[in-house]
Design a protein around this nucleic acid. Sequence first.
RNA 1: UGGCCUAUGGUGUAACUGGCAACACGUUGGUUUUUGGUACCAAAGAGUCUAGGUUCGAGCCCUAGUAGGCCAACCA
Length: 665
Amino acid sequence: MSEERKSLNFIEQIIEEDLAKGMSKNSLRFRFPPEPNGYLHIGHTKAIGISFGLGEYYNAPVNLRFDDTNPAKEEQEYVDAIKEDVAWLGYKWDKELFSSDYFQQLYDWAVYLIKEGKAYVDSQSSEAMAEQKGTPTQPGVDGPYRNRSVAENLDLFERMKAGEFEEGEHILRAKIDMQHPNMLMRDPIMYRVLKKHHHRTANDWCIYPMYDWTHGESDYLEQISHSLCSLEFKPHRELYDWFLDQVVDEDKLRPKQREFARLNLSYTIMSKRKLLKLVEDGVVNGWDDPRMPTISGLRRRGYTPNAIRKFVETVGVAKRENIIDVSLLEFCIREDLNKTAPRVMAVLNPVKLVITNYPEDKVEWLDAENNQEDESAGFRKVPFSRELYIEKEDFKEEAGSKFFRLKLGGEVRLKNAYIIKAESVVKDASGEVTEIHCTYSEDTSRRVKGTLHWVSIAHAVKAEVREYDRLFNDEAPDSHADKDFMDFINPNSLKIIEAFVEPSLTEAKVGDRFQFQRLGYFNVDDDSTPEHLVFNKTVGLRDTWAKVKPKQNTNQNQQKQTQQNNRSAIEQIKSYGKKYDRLPEDKQAKAKAEIQELAKKVSYDELEPLFNTSVKKSGTRIITMIALGVLLANGLDKNDAINSFIAKALDDKNALLVEEAKAIS
RNA sequence: UGGCCUAUGGUGUAACUGGCAACACGUUGGUUUUUGGUACCAAAGAGUCUAGGUUCGAGCCCUAGUAGGCCAACCA
């Protein structure tokens, strides 16, 4: 019995340390603080997963706090959508709170700061203030209003609150240090006048606190123990702490801000602003378009909360910039759906197949297993008849032995039904195959290589299938300085197909998820009605055949292959270097002989760069030495570079290296 | 007067705090299979950004570089 040690990420380690230092487990408290100015996306699921995950792990409360300090951008619609998304992911928040709940407290504290001489009203234009602020490499200078009297500041601030001034006339700033190396500390703005309707406080306020002034104090008011946010807030931490210093009571818990790297996904964008543009420009059909990386988009696409939570868990938490491959997300949804999605048959790109020895008016209702991964899923009936549809892709008149599907004279199994043999084809004027004529045999026990899905033409139901491709053609569409992300939009991200599905699907409900056998996972779209079924392709099955196909009929690959085999001798020698000095003696001797053989094909110019190999990589230096020995034996003259390489090796700690160096010195 | 952060296979995250660089995805083989899916087995792929240093021993500690990121909204 050995204790499994779960490796902790750096945030969990911080918490464990705090706990070890005496913090009570009961005082652990987290929060997820979205601004209600847009829809949540896959990037947010990481932040959600971290804070709510910690809450579940430590059985600690997690607040859902809407950071609603900018009425110009925020709307109730977004509050509702965010709540729906977080709930859908399966997380339960302790309290639903709003930064606007604290407007009065924040105001009172601001007045206190003014009285303490730590805040003042500035009455310049934003341009003038920006100029005084300096740049990251240049210090700022004090503005003309910095030393207003407390009385004057108090009077002005009260009048700001009373609505006596227009937007932009005055602001309240903290008085810190205009020369501070951290620009956020150069007298940051605490309040601005905004004569806007707020979705919760309506017109009660016309001054609104800024993020920095609000966030830490809100965390403190809620007694959040660990305030987790993404890396770009790191520079804010100093200010977060400064603001906290002004108001904290020593007896109360003082929140800690810690930062993690945000999630980036290849081929997608994560900025609310850019996502909004896709919606506004009609590139997609709304925030919940199945191509969108929003949670609502993924939900509509057929993703499950389980899959998303698994994904977030798998990507981990660290501090380095990352771009996660979409294939990981796809793996997570396939893994979940494989276990849960009922299998059905649907043909997306049909060709007619006639079973000539099957009676014309006969129909059989055959048993089909709903999900072989789940015994409790049971069976259903599917109708079989003389005329079927199969996928065009599944038939070729002639094909090689690697093609497991139907070809003339060949046999395949029809899933849940019989084995058939293709006898002949009917073609139209252009030579296109319009019908495949087959014979069937009722003996299903025989082994045949391929199995095809199918639908009975007479019983098939027409359905609209929406197939999606990535929205962008570039791996990181918004990371190009010289190009706009809109330049990378994939014009073919949506393909609408008229498909034929088995009749059991007429009973499918909006949101139901299926595996269309051999094709992928599909769910019933919100637009679907019993009269007009609409499916979204969530994700395809893993398809190793698709990878094999392009390789055939090009010998480019073969050329590549031979190039690989001819992979320069020097490369092969280098690969020995990695392990050489760790090899057992007999294998080492063998490797040495091999290296000496290969070295005959190596030129000095190829070898010389290896002289600079770092001292640590002794293996590489040894194999270089061996190869060099061969070159010298074949008549190469020693030069300065060679001499110094050998000299250095003779002084090395590695005995093997010294030995090889001695042999040729 | 610049400050701060980061650097480990193709990708992401580990390495019990100085002791054989592991796990997952992906890739390549193979076995099983009424899904070219799933499951299972195996392999390839990293001397841990560079150069020094400390140490019996460094991915981890120290020094100096290099590269990338963040910070100059009355946004969050």
